[in-house]
Design a protein around this nucleic acid. Structure first.
Ligand SMILES: [Mn+2]
Ligand SMILES: [Mn+2]
Ligand SMILES: [Zn+2]
Ligand SMILES: [Zn+2]
Lengths: 151, 151
DNA sequence: ACCTAACTGAAAGTCATTTTCAGTTAGGTT
DNA sequence: AACCTAACTGAAAATGACTTTCAGTTAGGT
């Protein structure tokens, strides 16, 4: 089975979590594939790899891995939850094609000043944000014309 | 039953939709409350008001009202879908307290330039984005300094 | 008044996710 | 190495949001 970076194992142990076989298989998948996936898709992928991991453990461990900060959960607009590796020091968002689902990561998030302003005007303490930009990739642009509505 | 703005009724009719009793009750709720709500919560609210609207119709009509542009669907980070009125000409986002769920709307979204840049660098056509900022409101910040609370 | 496509609620179905529970294991202690 | 035990596991059952089905109803145009 693939090797998991010592830093990730350390992160688990330091919060009282063990490096179990399911945990190892799930982390190995993310380190190998470097992409986003849903719980159900991940379960099917692990079955194919004969990793011997139950669906229950997939759900439980995705939750744990988000909690310790190794993964992040992204809510797509259709309500479907996807998970991906948190790269150390990264700050990225997604540009998503509504036609084919293609995902492009980008950095250069211009929200820092807005967040500082909101903290002073509202008294909130800001600790994270969720941003996705939706559109149509070049291939999908001919197909349809959707209205321009933002959230 | 509360009056629905003619502009909204016109919007429905122009797309072949009728102003039915469930549709009217749902729109009336949104125009009266001016806030976000999930399908299930809205169903319970309408039951309380004795509006005589079935759960199926709540789901069906929220979908229709989003389609004609009277409502918008917002995916919270926990995956729960909420709906709210689209105010004409607005462009707002939400600052959400992770502690108590309090929601503050804000405008002044700084994403226009980013979107223009992304269009030129990726070839995508951008048509909408989803942004929510999460933190803790003043009340919930105090609570967390009070230490553990009893159940 | 009549017509009919749009619409309705109840019930059944789907499906992602959670809970339960009896047994297993990682990894620290002796 | 043997031991201990809280963390952990998978199977099965439960939950809960949402969708589909369907036989009957209604909005609204002619
Ligand atoms: Mn950002
Ligand atoms: Mn915006
Ligand atoms: Zn595309
Ligand atoms: Zn709060």
């Amino acid at each position: 089975m693939a090797k998991i970076p010592a830093e990730a194992v350390e992160r688990l142990h330091s919060q009282g979590y063990k490096l179990t076989k399911p945990r190892q298989a799930i982390l190995a998948w993310f380190f190998a594939e470097q992409t986003m996936i849903t719980a159900q898709e991940l379960y099917r992928a692990l079955v194919q790899r004969k990793a011997g991991v139950g669906l229950t453990s997939v759900y439980r461990n995705l939750e744990v891995l988000v909690e310790v900060g190794l993964l992040r959960q992204v809510c797509f607009h259709d309500g479907c939850q996807r998970f991906e590796l948190v790269q150390p020091g990264e700050h990225q968002h997604h540009l998503i094609c509504s036609g084919c689902g293609r995902v492009i990561k980008f950095s250069g998030c211009p929200l820092a000043k807005l967040e500082r302003d909101l903290e002073t005007t509202t008294g909130f303490t800001v600790d994270r944000h969720s941003l996705q930009i939706f559109g149509r990739c070049r291939q999908c642009q001919e197909e349809s014309t959707l209205g321009n509505r933002s959230i």
